[in-house]
């Protein structure tokens, strides 16, 4: 094997080693425990999704009617 190729392989191995070290040294236990504590405290485990205000559940024109996006009332007997 020629020298430049060997050096390239060594750099690759070093990068894999850095990734492995990050994985092994990451405080998995502490992070998981924090998540478990907040779930036990609030009894909420759903994700904190960053969603916009959902208008689909309201029909602003006719509040007593289902929303226009919902088609189920059409198929109702």
């Amino acid at each position: 094997m020629i020298k430049p190729f060997v050096s390239f392989v060594l750099v690759l191995i070093l990068m894999v080693f850095v990734m492995g070290s990050h994985y092994l040294l990451f405080p998995h236990k502490k992070t998981t425990e924090s998540m478990l504590n907040i779930t036990s405290l609030t009894h909420i485990s759903s994700l904190s999704l960053s969603l916009s205000y959902d208008e689909s559940s309201f029909n602003r024109t006719y509040p007593e009617m289902p929303t226009l996006g919902k088609m189920d009332f059409l198929y109702e007997r």
Binding site: K30, T31, S34, M35, N37, I38, T39, L41, T42, I44, S45, S46, L47, S48, S50
Partner: peptide, 15 residues
Amino acid sequence: TLPSQTNLISNDMII
């Protein structure tokens, strides 16, 4: 402030 490790659940949370 709630710890940053819990952001996946508590980012928009007020207790």
